[in-house]
């Protein structure tokens, strides 16, 4: 079984606050451009396909599959050295957006590309949370 990771607190600014606060409410918030329909992540104040600022936010399903992963055996950074070996992964959400994340709640040897996964949240101070994924 994966060991608990103490996630470092992400930097939060005006453009990314809605995302991190959404995670705090256990909602994975993505952006869609009302003008051209582009989905984008990480969040930005405007659409980088058409430069419109008509951006809408919507909660993703929170389900996806492992696109790639690596079982990390060496990292001396606090929060991670105690959690070795941990799984760093790209998860491709049903909506088509790819997120860098951790896979938790299973044995690292059981992680495979294509594995169906679902989001869960590690609560941090100040009403924000870090989304990560476990096998469905």
């Amino acid at each position: 079984m994966t060991k608990p990771i103490k996630h470092p607190r992400p930097g939060v600014d005006w453009e990314t606050r809605a995302y991190w606060e959404g995670c705090g409410r256990h909602e994975l918030i993505l952006q869609r451009c009302r003008s051209c329909g582009t989905l984008q992540h990480r969040p930005r104040a405007l659409c980088v396909s058409c430069l419109s600022d008509e951006i809408e936010h919507f909660p993703a399903s929170g389900r996806g599959t492992v696109y790639s992963f690596t079982v990390t055996h060496q990292n001396q950074a606090p929060g991670f050295r105690e959690a070795l070996p941990y799984v760093l992964a790209y998860v491709e959400l049903e909506e088509g957006v790819r997120l860098l994340t951790n896979i938790v709640g299973c044995s690292p040897e059981n992680v495979r590309i294509g594995l169906p996964v679902e989001v869960e949240y590690a609560q941090l101070e100040g009403d924000i949370a870090v989304p990560r994924f476990h096998p469905l």
Binding site: I5, E15, L88, L100, T101, N102
Partner: peptide, 14 residues
């Protein structure tokens, strides 16, 4: 801690 790398640093990207 900068917001641009905030989407990788919580996950132990090396």
């Amino acid at each position: 801690r900068d917001p641009a790398t905030a989407f990788s640093t919580p996950y132990g990207l090396t």
